[in-house]
């Protein structure tokens, strides 16, 4: 009996903790670390030739706070960069970190997801060097806190409306008004817009999602999505893709980066304009936004090297290969 009770207590505590961590882990779901080819210890030995041992020792022990001090004293950058935030930007940032490490093997880049809000908060309070965000800092933070942050528009993301493949032949194009009517619940059957007799199923994202904010603003002209209509909400773009793929009559939206080499769903043109990078560059397709990397104040030399690398011409082709747009190619701006 005694043993049973002790076990019961232990289980109760474990379950309590488990339920708590289940809530908190969603904030830091995906973690990836890209470390330089050599370890920090190895970097110390290679740097001895150019700098004093004391400086490198300080570098290897450096946290984000002393980064700027240490980094300015050495030319062969050896440091760590931390970033967190937008899950839409994470795949691009991770790929950039991989490529960056071939040029700067002694810099390690650690990136976390967690959402745009997390990224902005953490860069604002100094716990990471880079805060990734789909939304402008001014939309989320106090004005004085937002003013401290420096915006780097590293890429352009184009959002496409997507439908289940069963609708691919009949619903190739929607006018903006039709799209608004569908998402606000006025149109509930695809036969109202020339499709088959099939009920419309909206697949959306949470109202705090950056993807949804962008789609609502530029595709729906600010009209809020209906909460009465038949709809399903999904936590992330991967889940949205899966839900649209497996439900006939489903319509949703996600970034073009999720549609590279993907035939599982079909994109829909808005007012006759296909959601492509070319149409985004020339300004004819309206549903796009910047992906921001925020730093608190001007970035340190190390962080600047990373951001400059992403904005460089050599990396631009890889940005496009992943379905994002290159900021420099935009003929329109916001």
């Amino acid at each position: 009996m005694k043993l049973k009770k002790v076990m019961g207590n232990a289980m109760a505590v474990t379950l309590m903790l488990a339920s708590l961590t289940a809530c908190s882990t969603s904030g830091t779901a995906a973690t990836s670390t890209t470390t330089g080819g050599t370890t920090t210890a190895a970097a110390t030995t290679t740097d001895v030739a150019t700098t004093t041992a004391a400086t490198t020792a300080e570098t290897s022990a450096s946290s984000a706070a002393v980064t700027s001090v240490a980094a300015t004293t050495i030319s062969n950058l050896s440091d760590s960069i931390t970033g967190s935030g937008s899950s839409a930007l994470l795949p691009l940032a991770q790929d950039a970190a991989e490529a960056f490490k071939t040029q700067y093997p002694d810099i390690s880049v650690t990136l976390n997801a967690g959402g745009s809000g997390t990224g902005l908060k953490q860069v604002s309070d100094g716990s990471v060097d880079i805060g990734n965000s789909d939304v402008a800092a001014e939309d989320k933070l106090d004005a004085d806190k937002a003013a401290e942050l420096v915006d780097h528009k590293v890429a352009v993301v184009t959002m496409a409306a997507i439908v289940n493949n069963e609708l691919s032949d009949s619903v190739k194009n929607l006018t903006k008004q039709q799209l608004i009517d569908i998402f606000t619940g006025k149109i509930t059957n695809w036969n109202e817009v020339g499709g088959p007799d099939q009920a419309v199923l909206l697949v959306t994202r949470p109202d705090t999602s950056g993807t949804r904010a962008l789609f609502t603003e530029y595709a729906l002209d600010g009209n809020q999505e209906s909460s009465d209509a038949s709809y399903l909400e999904t936590d992330n773009s991967g889940e949205l893709l899966e839900t649209v793929k497996s439900n006939p009559g489903a319509i949703g939206y996600l970034a073009l980066s999720y549609l590279v080499n993907n035939q599982d769903v079909s994109t829909v043109a808005i007012d006759g304009v296909e959601p492509t990078l070319e149409n985004t560059y020339n300004g004819s397709y309206p549903v796009w936004g910047y992906e921001h990397m925020y730093t608190k104040g001007e970035p340190s030399e190390t962080v600047k090297a990373f951001i400059d690398f992403i904005l460089s011409d050599t990396y631009a082709s890889r940005i496009e290969a992943q379905g994002y747009g290159v900021t420099a190619k935009m003929t329109v701006s916001r």
Binding site: C23, A29, A113, G114, G115, K140, P206, D235
Partner: peptide
């Protein structure tokens, strides 16, 4: 929706200290 599902899908996107958060 459930309590946990709304927390899981929105916590990371909301900013610390806002009404939503």
């Amino acid at each position: 929706s459930t309590l946990t599902s709304v927390i899981a899908s929105n916590m990371g996107n909301t900013f610390d200290g806002t009404e939503y958060n």
